[in-house]
Every structure is written in structure tokens, then in C-alpha cells.
Design a binder for these strands. Structure first.
Lengths: 244, 244
DNA sequence: GTCAAAAAATGACAATACGTCATTTAATGA
DNA sequence: TCATTAAATGACGTATTGTCATTTTTTGAC
């Protein structure tokens, strides 16, 4: 049993190693140019061995995505635990999402590659189930903040948007914003100097519009964002700044 | 000259034919499974001939994207010409965007595939320039509606968002919403019954939040949406309904 | 109508990558 | 020590991209 356990540990270690090589290759050369042969070379194992870990290229993709999602979920949990009003917690979610995207290059592109174009049909059931479960949990987590706001009467039930619909809208806004930023459009030339700030103000406007108290006219949320960055996500914020 | 012109016409026709075959193949089997050989077979030309039209697979992709963008731009122009308040025109933009996405399957996926993963580096300069130009024009077109609102005092200059930033935010919201919908997430199970309506209400909230008059509490924009669908985009709306 | 020159079409070919599987190599424990 | 089991390997079959020498067609001068 000891030997079995040792063997299993070795395999798990190698699994992580191969995944990491994949991640780095994608980071430098893009998913398009990721080749199993290449991973084999770098890891100094043979192609067959790599295929014992990942039945196909797509399996690497989804496992990287799941790894990213686990990170996001954990950051969201810390955001929800922020001591403050429900709206401040939602702001912490935004900050977490931004930092997560900044710290995980390509995470959006990977997620999208995974979901688009019949890619999901090639991956293992286990990975796919985990993927769905994570998505579900993440949405539920954010929705719980909205529900808390309703309970605390900071947001009126029966406002124009239901809790999950509001989550969907905010998700759209953040996700869409990151996406547009990642498309290397000449945003600056279009007059969009600071897209992140624009997204933040759009969120504020939207939350004001549905009447989530305290309104942005009643509270300095920009200062709150700074406080969140320097307390809850101090480490991530630092990593983010030193990376550029 | 007549002969030259005839030849050119033949080539242009074939070019359109090949593009259309590509579009249909992508529609049924996804961009991943698009093969030049396959296009050659279906068109009954040889592979070499196909390569005389498109230097690579990516060239087909960008040309399809550009074709889609031209369609979007033309719909946006009609939306801007809607007779109504500036905010109603912006709503017409939303309707146009939704219809466009519904009528052009995969258009988002294609656009994203094009922009992600070093794909742009393989395409011709002409196509790339056209692509950038179209993006620019489309953003400018929407921004002009915001500027009109400011001129008409329906929206206060110096509101929390500048004109291009507001465009960016709305774009994020619409684009992100469509994207999330296209990822075949179990939105319904997450409590999001009607994502399109959610996006619409999010837009209304956001525009209310920045004080774009008349506010949604002062005006029945749902009715306006219906009117836009049945007048400006009657044809598209019909095509959209009969397609499903 | 003929024919040489130009243009266009063709498909064989090299290159690259995925995924399989028979064979080789290593580990185990009786 | 050795038979058995597990694991690693890389040659191979298949598929797809993109090129290019060769063949075919078109053109226009005579």
C-alpha cells in the first residue's frame, strides 16, 4: 500500500508537471500552437506517456480551465467574506474578477476555446462535470450576495432584475469588458482611455439604476475598491503590479 | 477590357461561392473542422484553386467576419435613423445587435477565434485593415448617438461615463451577454430564464443610472422595442422567427 | 483557323500534428 | 532468481496544411 501510494504520488506530480508545461506553452505560443509532441520533449517523457495523462489536447485545456475556475471561486469566497455592505461585497467580486483575469493570462481565451466549437465533446466526463459544477458554484456564490442584499433590504425584491438575472448582467458586463480588452482593439484610439474604470463606473450606474443602496452618490466606492485591493487581495494586487 | 472584366467577374463570383461554402461548413461542423480540401471537393475545384483565393484558412475566417461586420454596420445605420429620442435610438442599436447575432450563427465565435491566439498575424493586410476600419466605424456610429444625446441635453455631459466609455460599457454588456448565452451553460437551471430580457433590463438600469432621459420609469421602452422590431427591422425579425 | 505565349487549374508532395498500439523496458513480490 | 504485471516508448496510420512543378485552358496576333 505504501508503494502504491508512492506510485500514485509520482503520477500526480507528473500530471501537475505536464499541465504546467502546457500552461506555459500556451502562455508563450497560444493554444493553437500547443502540441503534444512538444510537451513530451520538454518534459523528457514520450508522447505515449503524455497521452496516458491526457486523452487529447482538449483534456489539457479543460483541466487548465478548471484549475483557473477553482482559483476564481476561492477568490470570490474571500470577496464575499469582505466586511461591509452587500454592495461593497459585490464590488469585491468585481475586484477579484479583474485580478484573477490579470493574473491568469489567457484564462478567458482558454475558457472560450473550450466552450466554442464542439471542443467539450472530446473531453472526459469527469473533467466536464467538474467544469459544470464550478460554473454553477461560482454563479451561486455571487447570487448569494444579491440575496443577502434583498434580505437586508438594501436591494428591493421585485426590482426590475431578479437575483440570478442581475448576476447574469454583471457577469456579462465584466466578462464582455475583459473580452473586448483582450481583443487588442485600438481602444485608446477609440477614446476609451481606461476600460477597467469604465466597467467599474458602468457597474456603479447599473446598481444605482436598480436602486441597490447605498447608491454611488451616497458612498465613495472608489475608495472602497482601493481598500479591497490593499486588504483582501493585497497579495494578488502586489503580484499583479510587479508582473507588469 | 470586356474580357478582363468578365474574367474578374467570374473570379469574384467564385470567390463568393467559396466563401459561402466555407460559411455553411462552419455553420454545420464548426471552424475547427473546416478543411480547405473539403471546400475544394464541394465546389468541385482543386485545392490549389481554393488557395488562389485564400492564402490560408484564417483568410476565410476574417473575410467572413468582415462580411458580418458590414451587415452589422448597415443595421446600426438603420437603427440610428430610427425616429425617436436618442435613448430610443440606442435601444434600436441593442435590437439590431440581437437580431444580427441571431441571424448570423457563429458570428461571435468567429470574431473571437479571429482575434484570439495569433490568428490575425496570418491574414492579409487588406483584410486586416478592413477589419479594423469596420470596428472603428461601428464604435463611432454608436458613439454618435451618445453625442447626440449630450447635444440634446437628454444626457448630461460630464456624467460618470464619457461617450466612448459608455459605448464600451454597453458593448461589453451586449457582447458579454451573447457570449455567455453561446457557451451553452445551463443558464435556465441557474435561474436565468430569459437572458435577452435580462440584458435589456440591465441596459435600462444602466442608462437610468447615468440619467439618460427619459428614464425607464418615465417611458415604456418595452413597447418601443416591439415597435422597432416591427418597423425598422421587420424583415430581420421575420427571418429570425421563421428560422427557429 | 493556327499557334505561341500567358494565365489558370491541378494534384502530387513535403511538412506537421494527432492519436494508437505492438513492442520494449522496468518494477514487483513470490 | 524469475515469472508476472505495469508502465514507457516511438514507429505507424491518418488527416490536414500549404507549395509548386506540371498540365490544361485561354488569349490574341497573324
Amino acid at each position: 500500500m505504501n508503494t502504491l501510494s508512492r506510485k500514485q504520488r509520482e503520477i500526480a506530480e507528473r500530471h501537475a508537471l505536464l499541465l504546467d508545461i502546457g500552461r506555459r506553452l500556451i502562455e508563450t505560443e497560444g493554444y493553437r500552437n500547443l502540441g503534444m509532441e512538444r510537451i513530451a520533449e520538454i518534459s523528457e517523457y514520450s508522447k505515449g506517456t503524455v497521452y496516458q495523462h491526457f486523452s487529447c489536447k482538449e483534456e489539457i485545456l479543460i483541466q487548465l480551465c478548471n484549475h483557473n475556475s477553482i482559483g476564481l471561486k476561492s477568490m470570490f469566497e474571500r470577496a464575499r467574506a469582505f466586511e461591509g455592505s452587500s454592495r461593497e461585497k459585490m464590488l469585491a467580486i468585481f475586484v477579484a474578477h479583474e485580478l484573477w483575469a490579470a493574473l491568469n493570462p489567457n484564462c478567458l481565451e482558454l475558457h472560450q476555446t473550450l466552450c466554442g466549437g464542439g471542443t467539450k465533446e472530446k473531453v472526459s466526463n469527469d473533467s466536464l462535470e467538474l467544469h459544470n459544477k464550478l460554473d454553477f458554484e461560482i454563479v451561486g456564490l455571487v447570487a448569494s450576495i444579491v440575496e443577502e442584499a434583498v434580505e437586508k433590504k438594501e436591494l428591493h425584491e421585485g426590482a426590475s432584475l431578479s437575483a440570478p438575472e442581475l448576476v447574469f448582467s454583471l457577469w456579462s458586463l465584466c466578462h464582455g469588458g475583459l473580452q473586448l480588452r483582450s481583443l487588442d482593439l485600438p481602444l485608446a484610439k477609440m477614446g476609451i482611455k481606461n476600460p477597467q474604470a469604465a466597467t467599474l463606473r458602468a457597474i456603479e450606474s447599473m446598481l444605482d439604476g436598480i436602486g441597490w443602496h447605498p447608491l454611488s452618490t451616497e458612498h465613495d466606492y472608489v475608495a472602497v475598491v482601493e481598500r479591497i485591493k490593499s486588504t483582501v487581495f493585497a497579495e494578488e494586487q502586489h503580484a499583479c503590479e510587479s508582473a507588469r
